[in-house]
Measured scan of single mutants.
Amino acid sequence: MDLSALRVEEVQNVINAMQKILECPICLELIKEPVSTKCDHIFCKFCMLKLLNQKKGPSQCPLCKNDITKRSLQESTRFSQLVEELLKIICAFQLDTGLEYANSYNFAKKENNSPEHLKDEVSIIQSMGYRNRAKRLLQSEPENPSLQETSLSVQLSNLGTVRTLRTKQRIQPQKTSVYIELGSDSSEDTVNKATYCSVGDQELLQITPQGTRDEISLDSAKKAACEFSETDVTNTEHHQPSNNDLNTTEKRAAERHPEKYQGSSVSNLHVEPCGTNTHASSLQHENSSLLLTKDRMNVEKAEFCNKSKQPGLARSQHNRWAGSKETCNDRRTPSTEKKVDLNADPLCERKEWNKQKLPCSENPRDTEDVPWITLNSSIQKVNEWFSRSDELLGSDDSHDGESESNAKVADVLDVLNEVDEYSGSSEKIDLLASDPHEALICKSERVHSKSVESNIEDKIFGKTYRKKASLPNLSHVTENLIIGAFVTEPQIIQERPLTNKLKRKRRPTSGL
Score class of each variant (00 low, 15 high):
N132S: 07
G160S: 15
S140I: 03
L73R: 01
V154G: 07
T176M: 09
Y101S: 03
K175A: 08
P173E: 12
E116A: 07
C47W: 01
C91R: 04
Y130S: 10
L28A: 14
Q81E: 06
G183R: 09
S184R: 06
Y130V: 08
L165N: 13
A108Y: 13
P25D: 01
P145M: 07
G129V: 11
T77R: 12
V162F: 05
T77M: 04
N112E: 02
L3S: 12
M18C: 01
S72G: 12
K32Q: 02
L73K: 03
L87G: 13
F43Y: 13
A225N: 15
L156I: 02
S177V: 05
L51G: 07
S157G: 07
T150C: 14
V154A: 07
R71K: 14
I171Y: 15
L3E: 13
V122P: 06
L138Y: 15
I124M: 14
L159D: 13
L118R: 11
Q19G: 08
R71A: 07
E141P: 11
N144P: 12
T161Y: 08
Q174N: 03
S186D: 07
L30G: 14
L51V: 05
Q81P: 02
K175S: 10
L147W: 09
S151I: 12
D120V: 10
S127V: 12
S104A: 11
L49S: 13
E29S: 14
L63T: 14
T97I: 04
T37A: 08
E149K: 13
L137E: 07
R71M: 15
A17I: 01
S157W: 13
G160C: 01
E84F: 00
L165H: 07
K119G: 10
E143D: 05
K135G: 10
L95D: 06
N53C: 11
L52N: 04
S80D: 05
C61R: 00
E141M: 01
S177A: 08
S184V: 09
E33Y: 08
H41K: 00
S140Y: 04
Q126K: 12
A102D: 07
L49G: 04
E84G: 10
N113Q: 10
P25R: 13
V14P: 00
F93L: 12
K88L: 14
Q94M: 04
E33P: 02
L137M: 02
E143I: 10
V35L: 06
N144W: 10
F107G: 06
G129A: 10
S140C: 05
S114C: 00
K32A: 11
M18G: 00
N53L: 10
Q148A: 14
Q148R: 09
L137Q: 08
I15E: 01
Q60T: 14
T176Q: 06
R131Y: 03
S242N: 13
F107Q: 15
K135P: 11
N113F: 02
H239A: 00
T176L: 13
C47T: 01
G160T: 12
S186G: 09
P25W: 02
L30R: 04
V35Y: 13
N53G: 10
L156V: 04
V162K: 12
K110I: 01
L99K: 03
M18N: 00
L165V: 10
L118K: 05
K38H: 12
E181T: 05
E75L: 03
A108I: 14
T190D: 04
V162M: 04
E23G: 15
L182H: 01
K32T: 02
S104Q: 04
L73W: 10
T77Q: 14
R78N: 12
F93Y: 01
K88D: 12
R166G: 06
A102P: 13
Q54W: 08
L152T: 03
S72L: 11
E188Q: 08
Q54D: 15
R131G: 10
L118V: 07
T97E: 00
Q172A: 04
S157H: 04
N158C: 04
S76P: 04
S153F: 03
K55Y: 13
E100K: 13
N247F: 02
E188W: 12
E181L: 10
S114H: 02
H117Q: 01
E100P: 13
S104T: 09
Q54E: 06
N113H: 05
A108P: 09
L182V: 11
L152M: 04
D2R: 10
R131N: 10
V178W: 05
N16G: 08
L159F: 03
S184L: 10
I171V: 11
L28G: 14
P173R: 07
Y105T: 04
E111Q: 08
S114V: 04
